[in-house]
Simulated scan of single mutants.
Amino acid sequence: MKTVALYHLKGGVGKTAAAVNLATLAARSGLPTLLWDLDPQGAASWTLRAEAPEAAKPKSLWTGGAPIGQWVQETAWPNLSLIPADLASRHLDTWLRKDGRDTLATLLEPLSESYSLCVLDCPPSLSHLADNIFAAADRVLVPTVPTHLSLRALKQVLDYFAEHDFPKAKLRGFWSLADRRRGLHRALIEQPPKAMPRPYKAVIPYASGVEKMGEHRAPIEDYASSHPAAEAYRLLWKELKADLKP
């Protein structure tokens, strides 16, 4: 099983939209896929119409008291399963404080018997959870808005990788919420700065079609497959799929 994390230190850059669309496209291509919503806000879970079980105790999952299979839910999309978010997971850093970087990788290991791909929708923080994500993921995709503030946060992630000995080769950037009508966006897309780690060619546009995922509670492919954003996500999935091959 390959593990892909959608991560950025800055919020509001399109992580969840990318995670949902990539996961559903992977499932549509025939790969048994699991989306794990690690963000306590639960936007990916809500979009895919799922909620954590009322009796669930997420701490028991992370501390080894409950098997991970109890958390996996089927979705309305063939080949796509979900581990939904839970607000209690906002305490994850406290639960992980005494552990190393390998807790998440250990939890993911038994899932490889059932899934070919795991997509992680990650909260925007540098934390014990982030360390686990960086250690477990084969690729850390960083959706980046073509602005200096978003690039500054990306630079902080790059510095963190270097400082804590995470392989920089895991990082892949792509432009997100891009508006080519804006001069700065256009200039950065055409001449990516050195801080942009091995950017994919796909550029996800700033578009109402993407925002309507909340209205439809579905990936854009379901309701607007001919939209430029849907085409951009398909290209992103094509590039990621090729990138994950040995």
Rank of each mutant, 00 (worst) to 15 (best):
R101E: 11
D102I: 00
T103N: 09
L108I: 07
E109Q: 14
S112P: 01
S116D: 06
L117M: 05
C118D: 03
C118I: 15
C118G: 05
C122M: 11
C122L: 08
P123D: 08
L126P: 09
H128K: 11
I133A: 01
I133C: 04
A135S: 07
A135K: 06
A135Y: 08
A136H: 00
D138G: 10
R139D: 12
R139N: 11
V140Y: 03
V140E: 00
L141R: 05
V142N: 01
T144K: 07
T144M: 06
H148V: 09
S150C: 04
S150D: 14
L151W: 05
A153V: 00
Q156G: 00
Q156L: 14
V157K: 00
V157Q: 05
V157T: 09
D159T: 08
A162M: 06
E163N: 06
H164A: 07
H164W: 12
D165G: 04
F166A: 07
F166D: 11
F166M: 02
P167T: 04
A169I: 10
A169N: 12
K170P: 04
L171R: 09
G173E: 09
G173A: 14
F174K: 09
F174A: 06
W175H: 03
S176G: 06
D179Y: 15
D179G: 15
R180C: 09
G183E: 15
L184T: 13
L184G: 00
A187V: 04
A187W: 13
A187R: 15
A187G: 02
I189H: 14
Q191A: 13
P192C: 06
P193K: 14
P193E: 04
P193I: 09
K194W: 01
K194N: 10
A195I: 03
A195S: 15
M196R: 10
Y200T: 15
Y200D: 14
Y200K: 15
K201V: 06
A202F: 06
V203M: 07
I204M: 11
P205H: 08
Y206C: 05
Y206E: 15
Y206N: 13
Y206V: 04
A207W: 10
G209R: 10
V210H: 10
K212F: 02
K212Q: 13
M213D: 08
G214S: 05
H216Y: 13
H216T: 04
H216F: 14
R217L: 13
R217H: 14
R217K: 15
I220M: 03
E221A: 14
E221H: 12
